[in-house]
Structures are given as structure tokens and as C-alpha cells.
Amino acid sequence: MARSKAQLVFYIVTPLLLIGIAAGGYLIYQRMQAQHAQNKKELERFGYEMVATTRSFETTGELGTKQLPPTFDEDKLTPTQKVIRSLIRDKENLLTENKDLQDSIEALQLQIAELEEYKKLNERFAPEKLIDELKGVERQLRAFLIRNPDAERFSTIQIETMAAAGAAEYKAYITRNRLMLSEDKKQNVISDYLPGYAFCIGDGIEVAANSPAEERKLAGYFRTEDASILPEALYQDLSTVIEPCQLTLREQLDKDQG
């Protein structure tokens, strides 16, 4: 009989205990969920405040790095919050360093472009290349004059001197303006501008030079720009007749360039 009562109590109490345990577990679970949600909300709020504070009130330290304002007491931050704050600070510093690096790269790229252009100009005006180019200009101008019926009144040495003078003025033009002419522009200068200058020089040679020997000296002068090979009187006469020719040509070229 006593055993039957014990069994009866067991059957009655056990379900009640299970119900109590289940109810307690549910309440504990609900409380844990609420605490988790609260922690998550506070964590998000902390991160938002950190980002907003960093963007709005950041300062620059002595070494040039951005510093976050002392809005939060480090001692009161949780380990997770400290990690977040450290990551935000690192991110801001990396963004600043990246911007500085990009600025440096752009500045270096500009310098490289300028150096490349400077290199091309130096190569363009290297003595060997320039001499070859001037020889080509003189050769083309001489061929043009030989084919031109209006140049039949000039002697062979006079035409050579006229072509040499044209090449010398071509050199003065490109070096004066530090120009790198395209092939089309070069041909334009040779065919449209230098012939008129050459005819002007040819007319001046007839006045300045008194003999074929002096005409040859003039051709050498135009090729070398060495005034010492000319007698003083011949140099003075040449300077007198060449100046109007140069002024006219240079005005035309400068106008065309502008």
C-alpha cells in the first residue's frame, strides 16, 4: 500500500516538475534573447557613434596621423568595443595613408611624363640627329629651287648658299621654339615658307658677295654659323641684307604657329 502511494506521488509530482523546468527554461531563454538583442543594439549604437565621431571631430596629431576624439573612456569599454575602436582607428589611418600614396603616385606620374618629354626633346636636338635633319632640309630645299623656273637666274653656288641659309633658319625656328615638328608640318615649312626666304637670301647674296669665292664662304657660314670664316666687310654686308629676310620669315612662322 505504501508503495502504491509512493508511485502515485511520483506520477503526480514528476509531470509538475517537468512543467516547472520547461517553464523556467523558456523564461531563461527569453531573458537571454532579450539580453542578446540589447547587447547587439548597444554594440551597433557604439559603432555608429564611433564612426560619426571619427568623421565629424577627428583631429591631426603631431606626426600627421588622424586621431579620434576622447569621447569614450578606454577603461570603461568592453574588450569587443576596444577591438572595434582599434579597427576604426586603423581604417581611418589606412585611408589617409592610401590617399597620400595616391597623391604621391599621381605626382610621380606627372614627373615621369615631363621627363619623357624632356628626353624626347634632348634626343630631338642631339647634335648628330639635328645635323642629319638639317642636311635633309637643305637637300630638299635645293632640289625645290633647282626645279623652280624662278630660280634659273641664280648660279649653282648661289642656289647651294640659298638652301644652306634656309636650313640654318629652319634650325633657328625649331630651336627657338623647342618644337618637335611632325613630318607634315616639317614639309609645310620647307615648301611654303623657306623658298620665299631662300629667294630673299639669293637677292641679298648678289649684293653682299663680290665673287664666287665669297659666295662659297657664305654657304660655309650658313652651314656652320662660324662668322670667323667671313671677312669683316662681307659679314657686315650680309648682316645688312639678311635681317629683313629673317624678320619677314619669322613673323610668318610665328603667326602660323599661333
Score class of each variant (00 low, 15 high):
1 M>G: 15
4 S>D: 09
4 S>M: 07
4 S>W: 01
8 L>Q: 13
8 L>R: 14
9 V>H: 10
10 F>N: 11
11 Y>L: 13
14 T>M: 05
14 T>L: 10
20 G>L: 09
27 L>S: 08
28 I>Q: 10
28 I>L: 10
29 Y>I: 04
29 Y>P: 00
34 A>I: 06
37 A>G: 03
37 A>S: 12
39 N>I: 10
42 E>A: 12
46 F>R: 05
50 M>D: 03
55 R>Q: 14
55 R>I: 15
56 S>T: 01
56 S>I: 01
56 S>P: 00
57 F>R: 14
57 F>G: 13
58 E>I: 09
58 E>D: 08
62 E>W: 01
63 L>M: 08
65 T>A: 14
68 L>P: 03
70 P>W: 02
70 P>R: 07
70 P>C: 07
73 D>P: 00
76 K>L: 15
76 K>Q: 12
77 L>D: 01
80 T>Y: 01
80 T>A: 08
80 T>R: 06
83 V>Q: 13
86 S>H: 11
89 R>N: 09
90 D>I: 06
90 D>Y: 05
94 L>D: 05
95 L>C: 05
99 K>A: 14
101 L>F: 09
102 Q>T: 13
103 D>L: 12
107 A>G: 06
109 Q>L: 14
114 E>A: 15
117 E>C: 00
122 N>Q: 13
126 A>L: 00
126 A>M: 00
127 P>G: 06
127 P>K: 08
128 E>C: 01
129 K>A: 11
130 L>A: 11
131 I>Q: 11
132 D>S: 12
136 G>Y: 04
136 G>L: 07
137 V>F: 06
138 E>N: 02
139 R>K: 07
140 Q>F: 00
145 L>N: 02
146 I>D: 07
146 I>R: 10
148 N>M: 01
150 D>P: 00
151 A>Y: 04
152 E>Y: 04
152 E>L: 11
155 S>V: 02
155 S>C: 03
156 T>D: 05
160 E>M: 11
162 M>T: 04
162 M>N: 02
162 M>V: 07
163 A>Q: 00
163 A>M: 00
164 A>Q: 02
164 A>R: 02
164 A>D: 02
164 A>H: 03
164 A>T: 08
165 A>N: 04
166 G>K: 04
169 E>R: 09
170 Y>F: 14
175 T>G: 07
177 N>A: 13
179 L>W: 04
179 L>M: 11
179 L>R: 04
179 L>T: 07
181 L>E: 04
184 D>N: 09
186 K>N: 07
186 K>D: 01
192 D>S: 12
193 Y>G: 06
195 P>D: 03
199 F>G: 03
199 F>I: 06
203 D>S: 10
204 G>F: 00
209 A>H: 06
211 S>I: 06
216 R>Q: 10
217 K>C: 07
218 L>K: 07
221 Y>G: 05
221 Y>Q: 01
222 F>Q: 05
222 F>T: 04
227 A>D: 09
228 S>D: 07
229 I>E: 07
229 I>Y: 12
231 P>S: 14
232 E>V: 10
233 A>S: 10
235 Y>K: 15
236 Q>D: 12
236 Q>F: 07
237 D>E: 15
238 L>D: 05
241 V>H: 11
242 I>E: 05
245 C>H: 03
250 R>M: 10
253 L>D: 01
257 Q>A: 15
257 Q>R: 15
258 G>W: 02
